[in-house]
Design a protein around this nucleic acid. Structure first.
Lengths: 224, 224
DNA sequence: GCAAAAATAATAGTATTACTATCATATCAT
DNA sequence: ATGATATGATAGTAATACTATTATTTTTGC
């Protein structure tokens, strides 16, 4: 299993990058360091110039991998969702019972992220922080529709649809499986954010985490 | 009632602006035109220079009202939530039944916005678009915690808490009233966004709007 | 082991942004 | 009429988000 995982590569829409960062050492350093920098200083303060200095490389070299920092964010978040999807498929595949399957899926999607040794240059917990703090910015733009047509959000959409189908498998008559699936994904990021910055707006704290909240919410709805 | 409304002013944290835009003609034009421009071109493309040109005024004059465009966004979104809160309090005040009260609140908070003649320089439907597309950007920053301490998000927090209390009044034993309230507010904006740009990720379309989805969701949960 | 190709680095330059500062002019209140 | 306040015009700055060009390394194919 460990060995199997080591050969897995998260497949990302090739239009998102100019040159595949997985294909070279510099590329991997760009990805690795950008995760550290963005999680530390936030997406707006992050620049290719700063990243170049940090990795001892040149600004112009980074542009050979990504057109701009928006594309880099799309790359990082796509990778994250691809990784979540992979883990979701992997862990739910063998579960026959629809309810248990959905339960597992919700756990994977809403739990706080732990490190995965299979991808050594990627710090998953920090990437998770980035997704919580920055993911919305990748689609709340004037270019969403064109970028969506280009398939830049493909992995995320596939993930929502997987969960939507799992919901339908638990309750065929439920009228809002896609809305509920997207609420789980987006809402979970939001609850994590509230826990960190607006604790009075959430009941998710130490024991009561977003996973508990959404498990209760989803299964109460689908029971009826 | 019409006359009563005409004298209402949405109270916004004074630290958000340098000079109250409601206090002058130029200020009102700044607010009025910025709503049109931001909703049309998006927040990132919008600049004070462009706004100055549009209203036949000077960039430097706009800086006398708002420190920067981030503060202007805080102002506009605070106004929006203040206006929603006002309408929510106004229309639920006379309702004695807790369930009907919450139902009304959810309607006000999740429905698509219609124009309000009481505030002539503010185009509420366009402001609603701005909130859907840009609100997250106002708090997904490195400065959230300091700005939160300054009270910049006070109106929004009060609104979430009002709904949270209404939830508790319907179901005392429900464990996640604040999380559910924040899910309704944030989730509703998200479902509106998905309807406009990622229709495959939502079941909210013409007839099935976010209001229906959340009414069903909330009352199913609180029933049990 | 060497030449060609590919990758990376260095440098310079551009338009735009997000301001700040200063000074001039217009309006308004007493 | 005077002084205060609001607004406008102009200029300037540092940083950003790039593009373009040329130089230097590194890789690779034979």
């Amino acid at each position: 299993m460990e060995e199997l995982l080591q050969s897995v590569k998260i497949g990302i829409n090739e239009k998102i990058y100019v040159k595949d960062p997985e294909s070279s050492d510099l590329g991997k350093r760009i990805v690795q360091e950008s995760i550290l920098m963005i999680s530390e200083m936030g997406f707006e303060s992050f620049t290719f110039k700063k990243l170049g200095t940090k990795i001892g490389s040149n600004e112009s070299s980074i542009y050979r991998y990504f057109e701009n920092k928006h594309k880099l964010l799309l790359y990082l978040t796509s990778w994250y969702w691809g990784w979540i999807e992979y883990r979701l498929v992997f862990s739910t595949n063998s579960i026959a019972d629809a309810k248990l399957k959905l339960e597992k899926a919700i756990e994977i999607v809403t739990k706080n992220t732990v490190e995965d040794s299979a991808f050594s240059h990627i710090n998953e917990p920090l990437l998770n922080k980035i997704v919580i703090n920055e993911y919305s910015k990748s689609y709340l733009t004037k270019e969403v529709d064109t970028e969506n047509k280009e398939g830049y959000f493909g992995i995320y959409k596939r993930l929502v649809n997987r969960i939507s189908k799992m919901i339908t498998n638990v309750a065929v008559d439920y009228e809002y499986p896609s809305s509920l699936a997207s609420t789980i994904l987006e809402g979970s990021l939001h609850q994590h954010f509230l826990r960190d910055h607006f604790s009075s707006l959430t009941d998710c704290h130490e024991d009561n985490d977003p996973t508990q909240y959404f498990l209760h919410l989803v299964f109460t709805i689908l029971k009826s």
